[in-house]
Design a protein around this nucleic acid. Structure first.
Length: 487
DNA sequence: TGAAATGTTGGGGCG
DNA sequence: ACGCCCCAACATTTC
């Protein structure tokens, strides 16, 4: 019997063995499997990972490699243009098939389409699967066949399709391997991690990889999800799932998470559907779906407002304001706490992301693209779909956007969602001794209170970079330009 | 997945 | 006892 030709499984944003359609499908053929990862930032354009994401990627690849070695195999690492790397591996191994799970970033869709056509032209089987979304962006559409631009009807359409979700795929217990292994780079050769080690806070906070993702989901399910509806808004406690980076890198599938939080829904049927944590959380998963839906159907939104009227919005190039915002020195404690949490851990609580982003685009009038770029480089969960939707939503120029006049008051947001100041005390330690009454508004505190807390306003902690009331009026005035622009 | 401005109501102090 | 005013407390509208 002739030795069977090998199949390449091209890992990308699906760094897991559980519920991996491309991997499962490849194994089903019985062919020996070569798992491959290609680092090709040069052709990924706006989807090329930022610094924090590269740290995560390096560690997630190590975890995947370890998991594959436990099964007797390993991960083949290459770099450069994906088409070239795949062609080379086919040449070296005589592979006759390539399997992967889809990505939805514009540059990646274009590249993958070309690769698929080239492979098929050469008689190589090329199969792509859905491994990263509950529903493909083209499966969900309005009555008249157009993409959704409003979240609520989109989510209703998703819930209606829930019965069509496929079953979960088990992780393979055994994978057939080739007789000889092609050469591979070391993960370190990709130089994904920083030369100066600034990632200590990341290591303390995260466990990249499939096992870390599973542990995070278990903890969320057992200790957090029941109170999710209320505690998710309190940045001072662990009230969110913290699954976002695991989901972005595909160390866990949204379907696995969906199924898990559905089975742990409360038995107590007297609770209203939307008030239970599981339902609220499933809506958050659907926001992720909505973001991918929008990115797929409106790829230009990566750089431009979906609402074209916002092209006329008068914005500023304020280098000093941007720097103060990036470094957590705006003088608004809740914002500075968030920006420092981001810098230290590669992550920021979602409530605080909204407040911090709002300050940048509405108080400082800086282009949302500048904020998106900073988040892209500093977030371990940086995701083109989510980042684009989030920033356009807060800037008021996207799909189902927050009305522009809805301007957060950072002081009130702090008092409301960090009522005991726990979050601020943790991330802005120079304010830690302030009484709770003044922790979100240090400049309103009497001088002796400030002094005895060891704070020197303007020296150890900055005065607010803008006056809230004045900035609010200026933002509303700027918005008038948009309203006057032709719809 | 706001906040500020404005409007309304009703209890209590007080002449 | 009564009307008047003040001003929380809450509701509505406006940005």
């Amino acid at each position: 019997m002739p030795r069977m030709a090998v199949a390449i499984v091209w890992f990308r944003s699906d760094l897991r063995l559980h519920d991996n359609p491309a991997l499962s499908d490849a194994i089903k053929t019985g062919a020996p499997i070569i798992p491959m990862f290609i680092h090709s930032p040069d052709e990924e354009a706006e989807a090329a990972p930022g610094a924090a994401s590269r740290w995560w990627l390096a560690n997630s690849l190590r975890a995947l490699d370890v998991a594959l070695r436990k099964l007797g195999g390993g991960l083949v690492i290459r770099r450069g243009r994906a088409a070239d790397a795949i062609a080379a591996l086919i040449r070296e191994t005589g592979a006759t098939a390539v399997y992967w799970n889809r990505r939805y970033e514009p540059a990646i869709i274009a590249r993958d389409g070309r690769i698929k056509a080239q492979l098929q032209q050469r008689g190589i089987s090329a199969e792509s699967h859905n491994g990263s979304l509950l529903f493909e962006p083209w499966e969900i559409s309005t009555q008249d066949g157009r993409p959704y631009r409003v979240y609520t009807p989109f989510s209703k359409a998703c819930f209606a399709r829930e019965p069509h979700l496929r079953p979960l795929l088990p992780a393979p217990k055994k994978i057939p391997w080739p007789a000889a292994w092609p050469k591979s780079l070391e993960i370190d050769d990709l130089q994904l991690e920083p030369r100066i080690d600034w990632a200590a806070g990341f290591r303390d906070t995260w466990s990249p990889g499939e096992a870390g993702a599973a542990a995070t989901l278990r903890r969320f399910e057992s200790a957090v999800v029941a109170d999710y509806s209320t505690s998710r808004d309190i940045p001072g406690v662990v009230g969110t799932s913290r699954l976002s980076p695991h989901l972005h890198f595909g160390e866990i599938s949204p379907l696995m998470v969906w199924r898990e939080v559905s089975t742990c829904a409360p038995k107590d049927s007297t609770r209203i559907a939307h008030s239970d944590g599981g339902s609220t959380f499933r809506n958050e998963l659907l926001w992720r779906e909505f973001a991918h839906h929008l990115l797929y159907h409106f790829p230009r939104t990566v750089a431009e407002p979906l609402d074209a009227r916002f092209a006329t919005f008068p914005r500023k190039h304020d280098a000093r304001g941007l720097k103060a915002w990036q470094s957590g020195q705006t003088g608004f404690p809740i914002v500075d706490a968030g920006m420092r949490e981001l810098w230290h851990t590669g992550w920021m609580h979602n409530r605080v992301r909204m407040v911090a982003a709002s300050l940048l685009v509405k108080h400082l009038l800086i282009p949302w693209q500048a904020g998106a770029a900073w988040f892209w480089d500093t977030l371990v969960d940086a995701d083109l779909a989510n980042n684009t939707l989030g920033w356009q939503w807060i800037a008021g120029c996207g799909a189902d956007a927050a009305p522009f006049f809805r301007i957060f008051n950072p002081t009130l947001q702090g008092e409301k969602f960090d009522p005991d100041g726990l979050y601020v005390r943790r991330w802005v330690p120079e304010l830690a001794e302030l009484p709770v009454r003044y922790i979100h508004n240090p400049s309103s505190a009497p001088e002796d209170v400030v002094r005895s807390a060891g704070v020197l306003l303007g020296k150890t902690y900055p005065a607010p970079i803008v006056d809230h009331a004045a900035a609010r009026s200026a933002a509303l005035a700027a918005y008038e330009h948009v309203k006057r622009a032709a719809p």
